[in-house]
Design a protein around this nucleic acid. Structure first.
Length: 883
DNA sequence: CGATCCCGCCACATT
DNA sequence: AATGTGGCGGGATCG
């Protein structure tokens, strides 16, 4: 037998493949020669020489029988040709059998033969699916690697995925313990539960989106959410525990990605997950920016994971045909129902707990727990890399970070979803755009990162014009430019309905408006802060959030509350119209009406601004981890009329536990609009332009919003989604500052979401504090036409009023230099320079004259006292710490 | 030409 | 410092 292998192998790939075969050979060679005849017989059976035969060979090799032999022989390893005698023989055989031609084939190992999937099969073949409990099988990476004839690196790829499903666990350096599939169902169940919490809404959203969209979404969310809320929380909490340990560091991707990937399947109704969607959803970080590369990398990893999962028989490759064509996807073919209880079993079963309770000492040693000291992180992160955040509700340990993380994750997810939605929209738009007559919706454009592929084409055409105008925008990187361009064109178009309107700027510009308020769904943010008190709440929140705006998309109705100069007005209408029109479709799909409505009702006061369309907008959960809390709070306030009073006045932070719950619910129902504040230099702030993403500093934002009105500064409210979509945000002002920023998010300008999220997740990004300010454009700051600013429900009525006058459809503010401030996350707070903040805040807030804001202010203060972090965040908003 | 994904450099972690 | 891990993405191969 060995000989066969050898012969095949040798010829094929002298390179590396041999090792395995060779190893056998070595040991056997001498012996084998005699045996040869026998082997000959065998050979024929396997289909000896054809290329496929090779594969078969490999597989067979992997088979149990082979394993044994191999095990014995393993030591030999792959020394090729070690014995010439053998080689010659083998060669001879080969020659004889196949003739030289065959040799070639054989030689060329063909990539498939080396595929990870095949390797994984071989790997799995070595171990029983359901090993006796008594026997513990330990796996030596080195040994396996040599046996299988691959570098260790590859084994890691396999083991990491297997570990994510608890089929194996790491025991020690270079040592893994084989658990088999005994606990697989439990693990899957756990993942499913966790997945519903994390992705349920999203998936639902997606699926529906494509189909029914709105309607279903609404229902779905409702249904799923409620259920999930209670339990999931628990699950999450568990993860947290793990996470805590996991936090340690890198546990990164593969393991987590694998789990998340599986979760997507388990949560998906269709059990089919598209590669690109999975990649987007899994890009936790949000980045966007140029993410094209990031996306590609993510996809590569998914292939790695998919190969292993395929080998496990859990998924299979399929193709999904969509409008644009066929997309690679995978279908879950594993178990769907998990009768067993995760909870109970977990304790016993070592492997079972994907989300091992923090303390489950119970876990079998070999399992995660066993790993214990070694690598908690890995195990811990059942949920995800960041699971830590979730640290159980009750577990206070590291409350902040964990929460944040969670939120971040959540946010990122949302963002991703939003991005995905946008892409679709973009796609739709694109073709529309193709027709010159038709203007593409601004929102769509950008997402360079997301769309990767699609977007590019359009932008160029448009760009030329825009760019010239935009000139100043130096988006940090090509990214910005790219992203912007596409968007800009669209924006310009949208605004005017015709590009011409804003020849210079792609985006709507507000003439001299000093401030723009962009409101997006901030929900998540708020939650977080409050969360600290209750982990549960956090979970719920997360759920709620997730449910809410799976994909934040653009919000059409952007409200401008600004004093925007006349130009604005002109533009606005057109922009609005277009945006509305264009955006509408996509938006409508995504957004559940409920969300919007409720907020409105509450916000009702917000007069014009609030009134309209904001509803439609998706709520991006961009909020950075820190932000989320704040946002939530804010959102809640606006959202819940009931609690609003308390919250609004007191601010959520103060009442985390209770408020949180409410909030979470509220949020779920009411998407927060990410809010962005854009302050023009004129505003009196010394040439500062601020763009605040709601996500980032929800609290701050909220405040700002409320305050703004008081300020009487013209504000533009842009739906978060819109913003996200717009590269504009990065607008010139931003760009400069951004450029420095490492975060890809910015670069991603194309997809605002990402950028936003990225910012949020990371430390607050401060984009050109002073921002360009002098924007030539200043006269006409552009705003994305499309997005209608969400009426910021949050905004005080006054604001609304003030703003009401101005609606910015376009979220993007190209013209002005704007500084973006990223709200730091609570944890991240350190980043922001506090010193600065105060002043700025004061400026912002002070200016305003008034309004009920005072309450908010107070709240803020209170928050500050409570949580420095929260406070900071808020402060940050105003001042943000530059990074 | 896009979809896959092997391969192995290299950074970071652990010993 | 050596060795273990594993992120990452260039670029080759497949379809």
């Amino acid at each position: 037998e060995n000989i066969f292998d050898r012969s095949r192998m040798a010829p094929k790939t002298p390179i590396k493949n041999e090792p395995v075969d060779l190893s056998k050979q070595k040991g056997c060679t001498p012996e084998r020669n005699p045996i040869t005849p026998v082997k000959l017989v065998d050979r024929p059976q396997p289909d000896p020489w054809t290329p496929t035969a090779n594969l078969k060979m490999l597989v067979s090799a992997a088979s149990p029988d082979m394993r044994d032999r191999e095990k014995k022989k393993e030591l030999f390893r792959p020394i090729e040709n070690s014995e010439q005698s053998d080689t010659p023989d083998s060669l001879q055989y080969d020659m004889v059998d196949d003739s030289t031609v065959d040799e070639f084939e054989k030689q060329r190992p063909s990539r498939k033969q080396k595929s990870l999937g095949l390797l994984c099969q071989k790997f799995l073949a070595r171990y029983p699916s359901y090993p006796l409990s008594t026997e513990k099988t330990t796996i030596s990476l080195d040994e396996v690697a040599s046996i299988l004839g691959v570098e260790r690196r590859r084994i890691y790829d396999i083991v990491n995925v297997l570990e994510s499903l608890h089929l194996v666990s790491r025991v020690a350096k270079n040592q893994y313990c084989w658990h088999g599939r005994h606990n697989l169902s439990q693990t899957l169940k756990t993942l499913q539960e966790a997945g519903e919490l994390q992705y349920g809404e999203l998936m639902t959203f997606f699926q529906h989106k494509e189909q029914d969209l709105e309607y279903k979404l609404g229902e779905r969310k409702k249904e799923s959410i409620p259920d999930s809320q209670d339990r999931p929380l628990l699950d999450f909490s568990e993860p947290d525990c793990t996470s805590a340990s996991a936090n340690s560091r890198k546990d990164k991707s593969l393991r987590i990605m694998s789990q998340k990937f599986v979760m997507l399947f388990l949560v998906s109704k269709t059990k089919i997950v598209t590669l690109d969607i999975a990649a987007k959803i899994l890009i936790e970080e949000t980045q966007d920016t140029v993410d094209h590369s990031k996306f590609k990398t993510k996809v590569r990893r998914l292939y790695d994971i998919a190969n292993v999962l395929t080998s496990l028989g859990l998924i299979k490759k399929v193709h999904v045909t969509e409008e644009r064509g066929r997309k690679p996807a995978f279908k879950w073919i594993g178990p769907v129902e998990f009768p067993g209880k995760t909870d109970e079993p977990r304790g016993h079963s070592p492997t079972s707990d994907p989300l091992p309770g923090p303390q489950r000492g119970v876990c079998a040693p070999h399992q995660i727990c066993a790993a214990g000291k070694q690598r908690f992180t890995r195990h811990a992160s059942f949920n995800g890399a960041q699971p830590s955040e979730g640290t159980r509700r009750k577990v206070s340990s590291e409350p902040n970070s964990p929460r944040q993380e969670r939120q971040d994750e959540y946010c990122s997810k949302m963002i991703n979803l939003a991005a995905v939605c946008r892409q679709k929209i973009e796609e739709d738009t694109r073709w529309v755009a193709r027709n010159p007559s038709i203007t593409s919706p601004l929102s769509l454009l950008p997402v360079p990162g997301d769309s990767d592929f699609c977007v590019n084409p359009l932008p160029q055409a448009v760009f030329p014009v825009v760019q010239a105008d935009v000139p100043s925008l130096s988006l940090p990187n090509g990214i910005s430019s790219q992203a912007l361009h596409p968007s800009t064109p669209a924006a310009s178009k949208t605004e005017n309905g015709k590009p011409t309107l804003l020849p210079n700027q792609p985006f709507l510009c507000f003439p001299s408006s000093s401030l723009f308020m962009l409101c997006g769904g901030l929900q998540e943010n708020n939650l977080r802060e409050t969360l600290p008190t209750t982990g549960d709440m956090g979970n719920r929140r997360a759920e709620a959030q997730a449910a809410v705006p799976p994909a934040a998309c653009q919000k059409r109705s952007s409200r401008k509350c600004a004093s925007p100069s006349a130009p604005v007005d002109d533009e606005e209408p057109a922009a609005k119209k277009q945006t509305m029109e264009q955006s509408d479709v996509p938006l409508s799909l995504v957004v559940p009406k409920k969300l919007f409505e409720s907020p409105k009702a509450e916000s009702g006061p917000g007069s014009g601004c609030t009134s309209a369309e904001h509803l439609e907008a998706f709520h991006l959960h961009l909020a950075s981890p820190a932000a989320p809390e704040a946002a939530d709070k804010e959102s809640t306030k606006p959202l819940d009329s009931q609690e609003q009073e308390k919250q609004s006045q007191n601010k959520d932070p103060d009442e985390p536990s209770l408020g949180k719950e409410h909030i979470s619910k509220e949020n779920a129902n009411q998407p927060f609009l990410p809010q962005y504040l854009y302050v023009q230099p004129t505003a009196g702030l010394s040439s500062f332009n601020f763009l605040f993403s709601a996500n980032q500093a929800p609290g701050a934002i909220s405040l700002a919003a409320s305050q703004l009105p008081s300020l009487s500064v013209p504000c533009v409210v842009v739906p978060s989604a819109a913003l996200a979509s717009f590269p504009l945000v990065c607008s010139p002002t931003i760009t400069s500052p951004l450029s420095p920023v490492p975060d890809g998010s910015f670069s991603t300008a194309a997809s605002m979401n990402f950028s936003m999220s990225g910012l949020a997740s990371t430390t607050p990004v401060f984009i050109g504090s002073t921002a360009v300010v002098t924007p030539k454009v200043s006269p006409v700051p552009s705003v994305d036409p499309q997005q209608p600013a969400h009426p910021a429900l949050h905004l005080s009525p006054v604001l609304a009023r003030s703003c009401g006058a101005v609606k910015l459809d376009s979220p993007v503010c190209m013209g002005h230099p704007v500084t973006l401030l990223k709200l730091q996350q609570p944890s991240s707070t350190p980043l922001t320079p506090k010193s600065i903040r105060p002043a700025r805040h004061e400026a912002f807030f002070k200016t305003p004259g008034s309004l009920g804001d005072p309450v908010a202010w107070k709240k803020n203060e209170g928050n500050q006292t409570r949580n420095a972090s929260s406070v900071q965040r808020r402060l940050e908003i105003s001042s943000t710490s530059p990074d």
